[in-house]
């Protein structure tokens, strides 16, 4: 009783067309149909943020979006945050600041940080902690993550003037 349909979306600035059943989440589609496995699954009910992607300019947990809802949407995943093959400021800050241990939450944190910096270019520590509260990390104790976000914000302000 397959009721698959064709969905067309812009994913990481490229048009993507995929077949999907209504019951498939965007997370499942990204990972299984499009092989974009950088988006991680941690809980499947919106509580851990590991599957965070940016959809139409807003951070969402892709486990709580249906794939069919992506019709016509613009979606950015971890694979699309840096298009020229190098690392962007946020990725560099996480890497240089040792802001990851096991790394499973890292793509979600980076996407959420992208959303934060798009909204607020110079966030305070409290802003960062509030904005990232939907992303769980069990390894780092968050200290180095928060510092990396601060460093990324600073660096981005330097590079974008």
């Amino acid at each position: 009783m397959s009721n698959k349909r064709v969905v067309t979306a812009t994913i990481n600035e490229e048009t993507a067309e995929f077949l999907c059943e209504p019951r498939q989440t965007l997370l499942e589609v990204l990972r299984d149909s499009l092989n974009l496995t950088g988006t991680k699954e941690g809980c499947s009910n919106g509580n851990c943020g590991a599957c965070t992607v940016i959809m139409n300019g807003h951070a969402v947990v892709s486990c709580l979006v249906l794939g069919v809802e992506a019709e016509g949407a613009e979606i950015q995943t971890i694979e699309g945050v840096s298009c020229d093959g190098s690392l962007n400021e946020v990725q560099s800050a996480f890497l240089e600041g040792a802001a990851l241990q096991c790394g499973i939450c890292t793509p979600g944190f980076i996407m959420q940080t992208e959303a934060l910096l798009a909204e607020k270019s110079n966030p305070t520590e409290d802003d960062i902690r509030f904005y990232l509260a939907g992303n769980l990390c069990r390894c780092t104790g968050y200290d180095k993550i928060v510092r990396a976000v601060m460093a990324a914000a600073e660096q981005r302000q330097v590079t974008t003037g």
Binding site: G46, A59, L64, Q112, L116, Y131, A133, G134
Partner: peptide, 9 residues
């Protein structure tokens, strides 16, 4: 309500 990601939707 939820985190920022939840509030987006």
């Amino acid at each position: 309500i939820g985190g920022v990601q939840i509030q987006s939707r």
